[in-house]
Amino acid sequence: MERIILRLWSLHPRYLDPQGLVALWREALLAQAVLQGNTRGYKSHPQLERFRARRNPVAAVGAYLVAVCDEARERGYAFDRTKIAMAKSHKPIPVTAGQVAYEWQHLLGKLAGRSVEIHRRLRTVQTPQCHPLFEITAGDVEAWERPSARE
């Protein structure tokens, strides 16, 4: 059985291929369910640490989901916005430049294998934008990006 790894990208969802965008939506909805206490799995997943550190973790993941839903709408997809528990704005969450760089390389690797044309278009991007919920700060890869959680 394949091990499922939760990936809540710090990168802007515009960079994801269709499979990646749909997967992000599903994984962020799962994260929302975990933070609401509605599921038994993934409770201690390291990707959730930055949301749990917020005063209102469900609002934080809701703000994350809103941006994913907005990107899907831009592409003509019909993600169900009513699934977002708390769709309101949230203060930016810091993410290190090292984390963004790590995720960028990770995403390029995934795209090279499954979405060659998108990879070709994105490989020249020098400074990728982060997800609108995040604000880039100085630093290396985040502590929650544990080697066992890396895909």
Rank of each mutant, 00 (worst) to 15 (best):
D70K: 00
K43M: 04
H45R: 02
L108F: 04
L65T: 05
Q105F: 10
R81W: 08
K83D: 08
V58G: 08
H45T: 03
G113Y: 09
L122N: 14
K88G: 08
R121Q: 11
K91R: 11
T124L: 09
K83L: 15
R14P: 01
W104N: 08
I5D: 07
F51G: 01
P46D: 12
C130K: 01
A138R: 08
R55D: 14
Q32I: 14
G62E: 08
A72S: 00
L29A: 13
V125D: 10
R14Y: 04
A67K: 10
L16S: 02
E74I: 04
H119K: 06
P147Q: 03
T124N: 04
Y42L: 04
V66K: 11
Q32T: 11
A87C: 14
Y64Q: 13
R81P: 01
L29K: 11
E2M: 06
G109A: 03
S44H: 08
L48N: 00
R54I: 08
Y15D: 14
G76R: 01
A85T: 12
A149G: 08
E103N: 12
S89H: 02
Y77T: 01
H45M: 05
F51Q: 02
V58F: 03
T137Q: 10
A149R: 10
R121P: 14
E49Y: 10
A112V: 10
I93S: 03
G20S: 13
L111H: 09
R26N: 11
R120W: 04
L16F: 03
L11C: 07
D17M: 05
L133S: 00
L48F: 01
E151V: 12
S115N: 08
C130F: 14
Q105C: 10
I136L: 15
W25M: 02
V68F: 05
A78K: 02
A28C: 08
A23S: 02
L16W: 04
M86P: 09
E74D: 07
R26A: 09
V125C: 15
G139V: 06
K83I: 05
I118N: 01
G98V: 13
Y15F: 14
V141N: 04
I5M: 07
D140G: 09
R114I: 10
E142V: 00
T82L: 09
W104V: 15
M1C: 14
W144A: 07
E71C: 01
S148P: 07
T39Q: 12
E74C: 04
C69F: 02
E117T: 10
R26K: 15
F51P: 00
A31Q: 01
E117N: 09
N56H: 15
Y64K: 06
V100P: 10
A67Q: 14
W104G: 07
V116P: 10
V34P: 05
R121N: 15
V66A: 06
A138Q: 15
V61E: 11
L16Q: 02
T82N: 07
